[in-house]
Design a protein around this nucleic acid. Structure first.
Length: 396
DNA sequence: TCAACTAACACGTTTGAACGGC
DNA sequence: AGCCGTTCAAACGTGTTAGTTG
């Protein structure tokens, strides 16, 4: 079930424990009808590990943020198709608020705890392979494994700055550009996935999330054994540990004969290719939270409530059901300057200027500045446009 | 008093340099 | 000399926990 659609707002999933009052959820997507303005040759994006994401989403994904930066788990990994093989593209991610409230964990569930904090400086993580030709991007999946989240607003490492106890979702941008420094001239498309919404936390609140992470995150294997991961449990001998066995296995002749070697490191490889059985088991075990989508997220992204919303992010964005490759019903192109010949009304293009995640009603000024900049043409120097979230951060 | 946050901790995984064999 | 596979230690990433902060 494809649910891509056109709208002026970020597309986020519907979480049924969100407060019913739409004023508390201005970031919720509109349930607009699917447009038929399919554009030939437009880009498809697929979320890798969508089953894993769904497993977390079902419970209510939480992402740890720390002062020094913490990776996401599950991490963002996507695959692309429909790019022009020999054209250069820059792929980037930013993380934007899913709504304008903050939450608290109370009595085993999330509750609204008031209006959101002023948004921290929004940063963009540019995929380290950028820029690369379309054939490169389409060759294999793109992993944003090394992207880190922090709650340190003074962070100097370029990590994505978020507020704890707020909900966010990642947006993926594909920009046709020869350099990250020219992305502001490139035509770009924005994608988001309904199951990637998460709550930023400094410590896990929902124990189900902890268990799920321990089950799937290789770095958390030290916490797998036992129901409670007490300190005493962790202080155990290395004897028979997975790592020890791993080293021993690699030494054994059978290991060599079987060709079991350490995989070459690559930033492109998806960490979790197959959903372990434990995920399904945990789902079967009744880990369905009251706010979980009760059906495939690709079918759950529309709600009536959303139709009431008018939330002007000044952008268009494609909502991508993760279970299938995205089939664009409508694409958004932000043309270069000077404009290449396109069958598009330039005035319309300006209306769809790249979104500023802060461009909520509270941040209308910045949004206006952004649009103004686009209308005026290229910025004179990087410093001019680095204030805008899409161009503020690169990771190479 | 309580919720949120921080740093330290121990453990597993990843990385990459060094080494040896061909 | 160059390639390939193996080894291994250091660096990194993880969730937990106790203490701190507001």
């Amino acid at each position: 079930m494809i649910t891509a659609r056109c709208s002026n707002i970020p597309n986020v999933p519907v979480l049924t424990d969100f407060p019913a009052d739409p004023r508390l959820n201005p970031g919720m997507p509109l349930s607009s009808t699917v447009a038929n303005s399919y554009q030939q040759g437009c880009i498809r994006m697929t979320l890798e590990d969508s089953e894993l994401w769904k497993s977390f989403h079902t419970i209510g994904t939480e992402m740890i943020i720390t002062k020094h930066g913490r990776r996401m788990f599950p991490h963002c990994s996507i695959s692309l198709s429909g790019l022009q093989p020999f054209a250069n593209y820059v792929v980037m991610v930013d993380i934007v608020p899913a709504d304008n409230v903050k939450y608290k964990w109370k009595k085993e569930q999330w509750e609204v705890a008031g209006k959101s904090e002023p948004q921290p400086p929004c940063r963009t993580y540019i995929h380290p392979d950028s820029p690369a030709v379309g054939s490169h991007w389409m060759k294999q999946s793109l992993s944003f494994l090394k992207m880190k989240l922090t709650n340190n607003t003074l962070d100097q490492h370029g990590h994505i700055i978020l507020h704890s106890m707020h909900r966010y979702y990642p947006r993926f941008h594909v920009i046709q550009a020869d350099s990250p420094h020219t992305v502001c001239w490139g035509s770009f498309q924005t994608f988001s996935f309904p199951e990637t919404v998460f709550t930023a936390v400094t410590a896990y609140q929902n124990p189900k999330i902890t268990r799920l992470k321990i089950d799937h995150n290789p770095f958390a294997k030290g916490f797998r054994e036992g129901g409670t991961h007490s300190h005493s449990k962790r202080c155990r001998s290395n004897k028979g540990s997975p790592a020890k066995k791993y080293i021993e296995d690699r030494k054994s002749p059978s290991h060599r004969a079987a060709g079991l070697q350490r995989m070459p490191s690559t930033s492109q490889s998806a960490q979790v290719r197959k959903k372990p059985a434990s995920t399904q088991e945990s789902l079967k075990a009744g880990h369905l939270s009251p706010w979980a989508p009760e059906q495939d997220s690709s079918e759950s992204v529309h709600t009536e409530r959303l139709e009431q919303q008018e939330y002007d992010y000044g952008c268009e964005e494609q909502l991508v059901p993760a279970s299938t490759a995205y089939q664009p019903y409508r694409t958004v192109e932000y043309p270069r300057f000077p404009l290449p010949p396109r069958n598009r009304d330039p005035a319309e293009t300006l209306l769809h200027a790249p979104p500023h995640p802060l461009s909520t009603s509270e941040h209308g000024t910045q949004q206006q500045e952004y649009r103004y900049s686009n209308q005026q043409g290229p910025h004179s120097n990087p410093a001019d446009w680095s204030q805008y979230p899409l161009f503020s951060y690169s990771c190479w």
